[in-house]
Design a binder for these strands. Sequence first.
DNA 1: GTCTATACTGCGATAGAC
DNA 2: GTCTATCGCAGTATAGAC
Lengths: 205, 205
Amino acid sequence: MDKPVATTRIQKRNVSIISEAALEVFSTYGFRGATVDQIAREAGLSKPNLLYYFPSKEAIHSHLLTTLMDVWLAPLRDLDASGEPLEEVLAYVRRKLELSRQRPRESRLFANEIVQGAPHILELLSTELKDLVDEKAAVIAGWMDAGRLAKAHPYHLIFSIWSLTQHYADFDVQVRAVLGPKVKDPTREAGEYLEVLFTRMLKVD
Amino acid sequence: MDKPVATTRIQKRNVSIISEAALEVFSTYGFRGATVDQIAREAGLSKPNLLYYFPSKEAIHSHLLTTLMDVWLAPLRDLDASGEPLEEVLAYVRRKLELSRQRPRESRLFANEIVQGAPHILELLSTELKDLVDEKAAVIAGWMDAGRLAKAHPYHLIFSIWSLTQHYADFDVQVRAVLGPKVKDPTREAGEYLEVLFTRMLKVD
DNA sequence: GTCTATACTGCGATAGAC
DNA sequence: GTCTATCGCAGTATAGAC
């Protein structure tokens, strides 16, 4: 809803600048906590000028959430039914953790939205997201039935991958506060830990 | 900071009613998204009357966060160095998951705060929380060194317990959207899954 | 101690000049 | 297509009657 006007090159460029600024602000302060003024300042535009490209604050937010959904789900889409099971799952974990490291703002944007009850994307969750998870959970269940992966609840396996990888983006301040300033790259440690965790969990003896 | 006035019974009762209402509203909308009007309505008081008990919106929020911190850390405090290692960890997971089930609003209150950079409790995280985790991570490391628990990064083990258990409170709408309406109690399924996960992760052969 | 009324601020959005 | 100016509203907090 409320797509931005974007036909000329200048317009496309400004829409992209605004999106970048809005991602920065929304991911830090949440929807209500963010102000259009802040986003405009971050984007280097005046407030009315910004509202020329997007009709409202809500429109910017919606635009971000929907366009980012694809990026967010790509790692799961890439889970390949014809691959080697354990390696496929571990590769998924790696891709997801890499996404948390490289795009923590996107992760926090979603986290803010979902913690508050997903008012803007509830529909997407029970359609697009559910369909994809249904499909991939079936693949994983197939591997388990074939004895190629240790048995476990496939849906909760996927939830645990989301939870553990996104934790290092969403709760970054807490992780750093607990580990102390000496640990420069918590996500690298996390990668090693998660590799061990899911191998022990899923490897067939 | 800014403790509420609470000497008489009526005052104590109202402070408690306000806290309950504020928890409901802050956990749903975050700090900025919540309004004093909403909290007052939820508490059945007029706005000025509410602001007689707490000097400001921020004071209510601080009061909630600091008083709830103890409840939140209790399960980890109860991890007993003289107990049987695997059983102690599993019991911790169970207590934490039970807390997510019974007090999802508290979990979301913290999640909102930390996702947005923990502006109000950063200090607490790097002192009280860090000290407790340091202590318990040492206990776990001791168990691993003694060969009573499979080796793994103790800090990230604790992070993974937080992450996995709180996920079912903080991301409840997403979990339910994906599982569909037929699953009435995702947390019960999660309990079984997590039992398996941490047993396979930590059991010594 | 609790209410009504209100001061004051900051925000989202629009009007209209250029 | 971008600006200045401003409207209208919602929000926090306070003054002062009862």
